[in-house]
Simulated scan of single mutants.
Amino acid sequence: MKSDEKIENVKAKMGPQYLELSLENGKTVSLLNGTWKLLKIQPVQWNKKIPNAAEEIQERDRVQQLSEKGNIYTPRPEEDKISPVSNFFLGLIPGYSGLYRTKNYWGAGTFTVLELAATANLISISSRQGLHGGAFQGSSSVTAASQNTQDTIFGEAILGLLLLTDAVTSSIMASSWNEGTYSGEPLRFSPKKTTWYGRGFRSLLFPGWGQIYAEEPGKGYVFLTLGASLFAAGIYQDNHIRTARREYNADKDQILNSDRIVTYYNPYPVVRYEWDIPLLSSNIIRAEGSKENLDDAKILRGNIWGALAAVWTISLLDAIFFSGNKDKLTSGFRFNFRVQPNSQVYETRAMGMSASNTEYFAELKYSF
């Protein structure tokens, strides 16, 4: 308590305004939030009733669940709480994340880097639209304008998705921040129980999250780092493709300008346009080189997005089948052989003899 009084050996249930305590004598006591400062999670030891095996398992599961984040809980003071709504809107600011307020600097820094990259990419697209209008002629300008529109929509979609993800995550983390802080070590009587669908859903959202949730952070951070790196590389490669496409369209336009003015006197001066063959050949070769660079950039972009999809898929399958200490989807055989004497004794009256029977058991089990 804030008065330094200790209330021990009780079961606690936290509510929005009260902390409800269940006492050994069956009574309950409600403590108003703000009157207590610390909750230490540990198994209760009530002596009046001897619990059976099922109740002991239930008590262990209760303690493990309560202490999943740590066995010492400290509520968040009212003056330090963060509004989830305001944190949501802060996450919509490009380059800033509401996670900074909850001291989740690693996640906040990741969002900042990705959002700045996506914003710079979008600004680059917008600045090139003005250049395309005066640089191209004929059908090339129409093609470039259409391509710029598609690139702009794609760039805006990437930035919008990042900002929305940042905003939702910031709001959720603010709610978690307001609950309070946990310290100490979780009380574990057995490995942490995680379900395959719980791990799979998390890895479906972000590669590596399911492994981190299953307390295998080594694999989780590897998948998360690879996913973020490939995503950033994909955005960069998209920007490189737009540059290569602009250069290719400009080189194509130069082919149309590979002519020259020739004046003939027969007997009066006549002006004609003729192809400058050396210049035409040079421009065609240059355009072919630009087209090859553009095709190579598209192939590399496909490889990057394909690698990201592969990492995401492997992370999902690993989270479902190979992560976590419980509820793994595995299969295997088990063979068991045992000998058990039979307690029954058979009497043969005619011979005046008795005999005992020995039974042999063998079982083969397949589990999935």
Results as ranks from 00 to 15, higher is better:
G324E: 00
R202C: 09
R128N: 09
R246S: 09
A144R: 00
G227T: 00
G200I: 04
A319D: 02
R272S: 15
T149W: 10
Q237V: 00
F154W: 02
R246T: 06
G200V: 02
E115A: 00
E216F: 02
T152M: 09
K37R: 12
V142L: 10
I285G: 05
I304T: 02
P267N: 12
E156M: 15
S281C: 05
Q17C: 01
I285R: 08
A144F: 10
Y100E: 07
S229L: 10
T112Y: 01
T313M: 08
A250K: 05
K13R: 12
R188Q: 14
N47C: 04
Y18D: 13
A135K: 11
E78L: 14
S354C: 04
E59T: 03
M1C: 11
A232H: 05
S97I: 10
S343W: 01
N336P: 08
L161R: 06
L131T: 08
L116Q: 03
A214P: 06
K103T: 08
S124N: 11
D166C: 02
T165K: 06
G109I: 05
K2W: 13
E20C: 13
E359C: 02
K6R: 15
W46N: 05
S367Q: 09
L21K: 03
L226T: 06
G26H: 03
K37C: 14
A54C: 01
K48S: 13
Y264E: 11
I72K: 09
L90I: 15
L159A: 11
K298D: 04
T28Q: 10
K40T: 11
S331N: 09
S139P: 07
Y221I: 13
E215M: 03
